[in-house]
Design a protein around this nucleic acid. Sequence first.
DNA 1: TTATATAATGATATCGGTTGCATATTAATT
DNA 2: AATTAATATGCAACCGATATCATTATATAA
Lengths: 353, 353
Amino acid sequence: MSVRMEDIAKILGVSKSTVSRALNNNPLVNENTKKKVLTVAKRLNFRKNYLARSLITKRTNTIGIVLPNILSSYTHEIVYGVETVANKKGYALILCVSSDDPKKEEKEIHLLREKQVDGMIIFFIGESKHCDCIWELKQDKIPFVLIDRYLKNIYSDFVVTDNIAGAYMAVKHLIKLGHKRIGFIIEPEGSTSILDRIEGYKKALNEFGIKVEKELIKTSPIRREANGYRTMKEFLLMKNPPTAVFAVNDEIAIGALEAIEEQGLKVPEDIALVGYDNLRVSHLLKVPLTTVAQPIQEMGSRAAEILIEKIEKNGITKPQRIFLKPKLIIRESCGGGKNISKRVKKVRLLINT
Amino acid sequence: MSVRMEDIAKILGVSKSTVSRALNNNPLVNENTKKKVLTVAKRLNFRKNYLARSLITKRTNTIGIVLPNILSSYTHEIVYGVETVANKKGYALILCVSSDDPKKEEKEIHLLREKQVDGMIIFFIGESKHCDCIWELKQDKIPFVLIDRYLKNIYSDFVVTDNIAGAYMAVKHLIKLGHKRIGFIIEPEGSTSILDRIEGYKKALNEFGIKVEKELIKTSPIRREANGYRTMKEFLLMKNPPTAVFAVNDEIAIGALEAIEEQGLKVPEDIALVGYDNLRVSHLLKVPLTTVAQPIQEMGSRAAEILIEKIEKNGITKPQRIFLKPKLIIRESCGGGKNISKRVKKVRLLINT
DNA sequence: TTATATAATGATATCGGTTGCATATTAATT
DNA sequence: AATTAATATGCAACCGATATCATTATATAA
């Protein structure tokens, strides 16, 4: 069907080895024959078959990325970072989506192995106790880099942001503005990214002598846009609601914002709000959101760089464990922080009517 | 290095043919031997090498997608639509980005061919006169589906939205609100998606007896976020500025919105604004944007469905040319449309001071 | 019992390249 | 002229699977 090197060889009366060498710029070929080969190749519109090539070279120049979803702008930016570097270095990218399902995730990882990718970047959402497929990668010396969250029980490369520091900054900011009752909306996952943010939250409170109260840490059900809505409502229905809320990500914060406004309250006048992620939407909201920005793109690009280096050095590099620094972006959703006590009264009043 | 079928064969004292059959669920194998093979395969953590398999089956179960960029939420949603279907049908997805560069685009298409993808989805940005690589795909019977924009001189499958209808709806909406001077900000491309929108714009004006004025159609330089900003400023500096502006996409509209507000004017009170695309951001803006929604995800998923059907029917299907219907989403950026003439005066006043 | 159908397996070519080694040709050295 | 080196090329094995065809073992029919 398609043109093979052998076809070119026959036309020119040479062997396919020579054709192969000519097309691979091997100096062992005579300049003249090389030219002839290239001419015929062009004329026949020859395309090399990388399957055959890779089969023998053991290189596909392809990396895989496994993500829990692809709709959030978070994963989106990761892909961007990864793609940019992969492309620059001459690697193709296979995109795999696990749909937040650990079993699917495992399948995707296996699939990538079967496709013989040179390495993979994994946003691993499986439980840290059930990560056999990651172990197998390590055992079989297949280069991989974890991203966004790491596994405490596996010594491997990863690129994450310093979530402890990020949450700490956010909460400290609220405390400095005078807040003492700071709600925290989290998600029902055991990932290091959330665990670390909880740790940062507690660290800030402790540092300023504020007691950590369980009722102020609420779990929002599913990962979805505007899912902070319901949880925020719960906060607003408390007898003694928080004067500030820290959302574990911006999507939750957006939901929370809606809930607050629907209740007839205002941000930041009545309740201060901090998010996490600095989505591209966040500064466009009715109340521009104060949030913790993660260098998401950079996370992707660093992961890709590390992975590719590992591939090209044949995995001899020792694991790199990168914690990128997040940054607090102060906008309008926390206000100036005066008269916290007065506000509290107003909020209670509004809610009890 | 890695475990091969032959290794399993040797352990069990059978031939590799038998192992292959067992692992492929071929009924020709004895149930018992199949079990043995599966057991050993599991024990050795065997992974099939798809390169070898594909080399002979001529199927990679992989499709490629070529996009001009990956940062816009537009292409993002396309990817989502494509990925969902590809995944469901058991195809992996290779992501290629042309970075708005026709030469790079050509390279990516060649790369996909070399990787022997079963087919590809192409958001083609090259000029319609220089689309040799698309011709070659057709000639060589490699399944492909164009997306977002089609090529007038190539009879092929494509999935686009009806841009004539979309623009027509938007402009008609403005006309019905009383606008007669309607500015149009376009982009400097010759793609069918923009040409068709221009056609829709003109069609609406013609239908209501409004003359098309060249000075009211302005081209915004580069494709980037908020790039409508400068062009909108130009409109505002005209002696007789438009009372409404139709932006060829929401990103331009967002830029335009900024420019208008910076000039001390208000949307929709002073100037009406319509976008195109219905980005996820657009309803979150300070002034929720009236816009034309395209079923972007659907475009991706339809393209994937058509492509895969084509692949699995060995390309015997005849080209499908799909025009999906867009939808006008009316929000707040056009207002109620009363007292257009008064507004005009106010705008002129503000600008000349 | 022999012939025939059925089920299970193996040997081997193949897919389209790459690569090591042998060989042929020409040029350089002594 | 003989020896050695350098340059080009071909042959054949190989990568790891699949697929065709031949073969063997077993079951069924005549």
